Structures are given as C-alpha cells and as structure tokens.
Simulated scan of single mutants.
Amino acid sequence: MTVPGHNGYDREVVQSYIRRHENIEAQILSEKGAMMKKCRDLKADQNAILEEAKDSHGIPKKILRLILKQRDLERKIEDLADGLDDDEADSYDQMLAAIEGMEDTPLGQAALAAAKPKQDDGQTDLQDFTKAEEESDPEVDAFMDKTHAERVAEAAE
C-alpha cells in the first residue's frame, strides 16, 4: 500500500518484509547445512557397515553394493507399479509378458550390452559387446539371474 501523499511505498514496511524473508532464507540454509551434515554422518555409517562386512566376513563390497542397488531399484519399480490404476496395471503386465525372454535374443543382448556403462577404449560397440560376452563373470551372472525373492530364500537356508 502506498503512503498517502507519496508516490511510492513506505520504506520501513518494504524493508521489514525483506528482512523477514531473508531471515527465513538464512534459517533454511542453516537447516540444509545441518541436514547435509547428518546425511554425511549416515553415509559414513553405511560405509562402515560395508567395511565391516568385508573385514569380518570377506563379503566383497562391490557385490554387496550391487545387491543393495538392485534391491533399491526393485523397490522403486514396485512403487511405480503400485501407483498404476487397474487399466494401466493390466497394460503393464501385458507388456512385461510380451517382452519376457527378450534378453535371450540378439537384440536383447545388444540392448543389455549398450546399457552397461563403458570406458572409451577406442573400440567399436561390436567389439565391446563381443569382449563383454567373453569376459562375463559367472558369479555375477548367476547372481543377476536370480530374483530378489530367490536370493532371500537362499540366504535363509
């Protein structure tokens, strides 16, 4: 609201709003900093767990991280699927059935090879695919062939 007899806004009122807003912004930044520190501490705890698994039981950290990442992605996929309405869920199930087994086809294998992160070593994609096929790790392949439920059942035995 303008001040009667003036062509502008009351300077003190405007400055008051600016100060209040900037104070809240400072509080937000402080909260972000505190939360980031808490997250760093939690991440350090997670890394300590991985180190403990490696040191105490010889569990490879790389494989354990892979399992953790896979479980996280499986949960995200389940959450996405749970958010579908009935018609969408039916379409989703039909599409999954349509592509089931596609990973065994040459096209599916090429897609899987292309999805893997790679370092640029100057080779062509075909050479990378052939090299990946020759260097596959049986332990990782066996792990990847199992569903989460199968791995849990095995661990329970």
Rank of each mutant, 00 (worst) to 15 (best):
D120S: 00
E100G: 09
E134M: 14
D121R: 00
V140K: 07
D120R: 00
A113S: 14
Q109W: 03
K131F: 08
A114S: 10
K118Y: 10
G101H: 03
A113W: 08
D137T: 04
K118F: 09
T147K: 02
G101C: 01
D145W: 08
A113H: 07
S136H: 14
K118T: 12
A114M: 12
H148F: 14
D145K: 15
A115G: 05
E139I: 14
E103S: 11
M102A: 14
M102L: 15
T147Y: 02
P117D: 01
K116V: 13
P117M: 01
D128M: 04
A110I: 11
K146R: 12
D128T: 06
Q123W: 07
Q109K: 06
G101D: 01
G108F: 01
K131A: 14
D145R: 12
Q119W: 07
P106S: 01
A110D: 11
L126T: 12
E150H: 04
H148M: 15
A111G: 05
G101P: 00
H148T: 15
T105R: 03
V152E: 13
D125M: 10
A153S: 12
D141L: 11
D141T: 09
D128G: 04
A114R: 13
T124W: 00
Q127M: 04
M144V: 10
E134V: 14
L107E: 15
G122L: 00
L112W: 06
D125R: 09
T124H: 01
A110G: 12
T130I: 15
E133V: 10
E135P: 02
E135R: 07
G101E: 00
P117C: 03
